[in-house]
Computed example of a mutant assay.
Amino acid sequence: MRVAIVTESFPPDINGVAHSVLRTAEHLVRRGHQPLVIAPASAAPPTTPDPCPVVRLPAVPLPGYPQVRLALPTRRLEQVIAGHRPDIVHLASPFVLGARGMAAADRLGVPAVAVYQTDLAGYARAYRAGSGLGEVAAWRRLRAVHGAAARTLAPSTPAAQDLTAHGVPRVKLWQRGVDSVRFHPGHRDERLRRELAPDGEVLVGYVGRLAPEKRVDLLAGVCGLPGIRLVVVGEGPSEPMLRQALPGAAFLGRMTGDELAALFASLDVFVHTGPMETFCQTIQEAMASGIAVVGPAVGGPLDLVAHRRTGLLVQPKDVRAVTAAVATLAADPALRARYGEAARTEVAGRTWESVGDQLIDHYGAVLAEHRSARAVGAAGGAAA
């Protein structure tokens, strides 16, 4: 198949959308398909070779959050899609560029699959967008884009239910894979542990963007627990505030690749605090690393964390609940080990190869429906 992937983000950007699109493109190439990626231009140069042709369109930084870049409106998008002659258009977390990609696919008569990955309505609520984009307007935009797609793929059961409840049709489940070779308990680094916890403290970590919607400030209570060292990995506009709110925490900045894998495996407890996750890839990476996890009992983590078997789910936005859960795990090494072992077993089979093949099956079903609809239309026209 020839696949045009229109995405709101792509490496060297670091986020869930960019990572899943990269893995998707790599898998399509391995399976003999021909993907083309169309993405906003990043402010940073690529750090690794692209797995397939990539067209980067002019983009500007989001005001107040320069790490996020928005593609500028341009007719070139439709020209690039048409030039690729795709069998199907894949829209990754469509909102700005993806909305134009949906319109282009419709004009070209090419079926589109829309992949829902970002709780944009929740973001609008969290940021109280002054541009007039509120939660209601965000859902109106999401319904318009996803409603025009032949199929919408949701990353978790809660996300699928949320889309359906808001009137989005033709929703199917498509979860994310994890590299269980890179993220592995065997990458635990005792030297790194000694650097971060010289007095043998329990290492508790957060990995992700440092932005208001992630609610990393909920880890403030953890900083007050005796015998615990908090490690924060990531960057974003909230970092200055968090450095004050989380006294004693080690801020390690942006980490990727083997360095990030070693950090995950060297933790004792992983905590994710964001209440608006449609999936939460970092929880899955921590689980693959054999680490007990704490996550909010809402959204994507509900599908990932088996409460009191692979980790602990807590009331969202509740600093005391987060602190209590971390304290429970910090005080019981045997419990941490049991949860971590069960977590590794839970996700070890969720490879990018397996979920990539599931995506190709979704493509095949959409193309079969498209051909059937065209045949029915042609027969109807002939009969008339």
Rank of each mutant, 00 (worst) to 15 (best):
R85F: 12
D357I: 04
A250E: 12
T152Q: 03
V171E: 07
D258Q: 15
E235M: 05
R31I: 02
H187N: 14
D179C: 08
G234F: 00
G299C: 09
H370Y: 09
A121G: 15
L142C: 02
V347Q: 04
T351N: 07
D13I: 08
G234V: 02
L246V: 11
V233S: 10
G227L: 02
A71E: 10
G130L: 08
P11A: 11
E346V: 03
L335M: 08
T74M: 05
A4H: 15
A331P: 04
L77K: 05
A288L: 10
R182H: 05
Q67R: 14
L57H: 07
P94F: 12
A105I: 09
P35H: 05
P237Q: 13
S238C: 11
D50L: 00
L72W: 08
T74P: 00
M241H: 13
G122D: 01
A41V: 08
R85T: 11
R176C: 05
R194A: 15
R371D: 05
A129K: 02
T74N: 01
R75F: 10
V145A: 01
Y206T: 03
H187P: 10
G98D: 13
G98Q: 01
L252M: 12
Q358D: 08
V171I: 07
E259S: 15
L196K: 08
A297K: 06
A4Q: 14
P73E: 03
L302G: 07
A211Y: 02
D87F: 10
A18G: 10
D303W: 14
L210I: 06
A124P: 07
T74G: 12
V293A: 15
K317E: 15
A297W: 05
A261N: 12
L263A: 14
A114Q: 08
Y206R: 06
G208T: 09
V178M: 12
R243D: 08
T256Q: 15
Y363G: 00
T310R: 07
R107P: 13
E190L: 15
Q175Y: 15
A382K: 09
A197N: 03
G147E: 10
W352T: 03
T351F: 09
P40I: 06
H272F: 00
V271D: 06
V37A: 01
R191S: 15
A137I: 00
P11N: 07
G377R: 09
D87S: 12
A197Y: 07
D87E: 07
D87T: 05
Y65P: 00
G248F: 03
G300P: 11
L302I: 14
H27E: 14
G167S: 08
L133K: 07
V319E: 13
P73D: 00
V54P: 00
P53D: 00
L142Y: 02
G381T: 13
A245E: 14
P155L: 09
I88D: 00
G109I: 14
G340A: 01
G200A: 05
G208W: 11
G381R: 13
V3H: 09
A104Y: 14
G356P: 11
S20F: 04
V37R: 06
M102G: 14
